[in-house]
Design a binder for these strands. Structure first.
Lengths: 279, 279
DNA sequence: TCGCAGGCATAGAGAAAAACTATGGATGTT
DNA sequence: AACATCCATAGTTTTTCTCTATGCCTGCGA
């Protein structure tokens, strides 16, 4: 079980064929067979169904494929992260509005634990920032992106609210209720953009100062809150996926390719990825 | 360049020694040498400076260590993506007395975050335990050891105490003061064992219920406390290394080779390694 | 000052893993 | 029915990894 096996796996998955995968990897076909068999034994599950003309991936393959691609890429990128030590100056950090405050502070806290000498200048403008915590969709050009967590906007209502009883929650199902949001910008990946792209116009809408405020208002019965799934819920609230409008986004840390990420931040990135992205 | 090399690298980084890393990885020392040399050639940078007594990491090592730990962890967790491990029964966890409560609870908290469905039965007896949090020196045979942190017992006194003024703190220097300890067992790696091996007899000694209690007593002027360096100090206390008696130990999680570590615990192990072993 | 012990490097042999060639069985295609 | 395609298997070769044995260097103690 190493990077080589995963590389073969990815090739087979994409080519849907052992032979073609072998050609792409420049090895013989039995090598692919053996590697996939070992992988299947190690994972204790079948990865491909062998058909007469090629193979077809199983559900297990679908599950591990994204991770396999990412792990291969990160292994290959290991040599690029060897950097020189960094000078200690304040890190100018721009935080995109509308993110889960819980997660952002959790990340910064880990960085502070890892490097107590590190300190931040939080700012709203992305100009002149060393690093940004931002949605991947809003990533400027020429920036390196380190994913931290993935969240989706969900509808949140107090227990007992009619919304929580429904089998499927759709945007039409609560368009008449008052909707409470914290941020309503038009940035890529934002819920407003997603709603707008589908022509949804919300009749009544309140804008709170923060997601937690929005949740508090929902708990008080003001309406249905829309907030990221990473925002912790107080008891008495229920969150439901909105079936027909998905606002999924990768949130992460971005920095210029030329910026040498201080080691404390690098450690925090890795801790948070382990904590929030491991299945 | 594969997972194996990275595993060796992490072991060397943590042990600061090729020989000890070899022992931990259950391979011979030349294997470690070869793997590190290959890694250095591949990354085109020096990872360790070879000293007469062990090796010391370079800045390049510091840079790749966090990512290496995470990649190894995610590789190991690949199989848990497919087959979610059974958390159907509680994890029986034995915690060796005398450890830093701060660290132990920090570790268990990470496990709870990673796998909310995980729950523990804490017990004092190591018999019938699934996992143990234990000093490496007290490791039973045939157990896998996952290092979590390293600590040493230190002398702790209130600021202004004569002890804190000295250039070097030796055991003779405070043998006349009352000494406060939390645990005084004879286990391998314990301070009592270290003291006993050197024939040190402490004249006056108090035994507190916990390290924090011992620190509180020291703060109140009862004497000099001896506690692990990982125990957080309240303000007004100063900790000094004891020059001539070193009680250094690796603390980690151990489990039987046959026990398959639930993924939440595996994630927590790696988060704590990042947090406590990165320089 | 001189062993001596600890620690890493190196060399060569042995073992394990991976790759290759050749071939067979199964299944569509012509 | 003959054929082509595709994957599995067997046996061999090549590469890689690991081990034992040994040498060199350095810090420590007598």
């Amino acid at each position: 079980m190493d990077v080589r096996s995963l590389t073969y796996f990815v090739a087979v998955y994409e080519e849907q064929s052992f032979s073609l995968a072998a050609r792409r990897c420049a090895v013989s076909q039995p090598s692919i067979s053996a590697a996939i068999r070992q992988l299947e034994e190690h994972l204790d599950c079948q990865l491909f169904v062998r058909n007469a003309r090629g193979v077809s991936p199983t559900a297990a393959s679908d599950q591990i494929f994204p991770t396999a691609v990412r792990l291969i890429a990160e292994f290959g990128a290991l040599k690029t992260i060897v950097r020189r030590p960094v000078a200690t100056r304040p890190v100018r950090c721009a935080v995109m509005p509308g993110l889960s405050g819980e997660r952002v502070s959790g990340f910064l806290k880990e960085a502070a634990i890892a490097s107590p000498e590190l300190y931040f200048e939080l700012q709203r403008e992305s100009s002149a920032a060393d690093i940004m915590i931002v949605s991947e969709a809003a990533l400027p050009e020429d920036q390196i992106f380190h994913p931290l967590w993935r969240d989706s906007y969900r509808a949140i209502a107090p227990v007992g609210h009619p919304l929580t009883m429904r089998e499927e929650v759709t945007i039409a199902g609560f368009a008449d209720d008052p909707v409470i949001v914290a941020h309503w910008t038009d940035a890529p990946g934002s819920p407003r953009r997603a709603f707008h792209d589908r022509g949804v116009q919300l009749a009544r809408m309140s804008i709170a100062h923060s997601h937690q405020d929005a949740l508090a208002m929902a708990a008080a019965g003001f309406g249905i809150a829309i907030a990221p799934s990473s925002e912790p819920l107080r008891s008495g609230l229920v969150s439901r996926e909105i079936e027909d409008i998905s606002v999924e986004r990768n949130v992460g840390l971005s920095c210029a390719r030329s910026y040498q990420l201080p080691s404390g931040l690098s450690i925090a990135v890795n801790i948070c990825r382990l904590r929030w992205q491991s299945r």
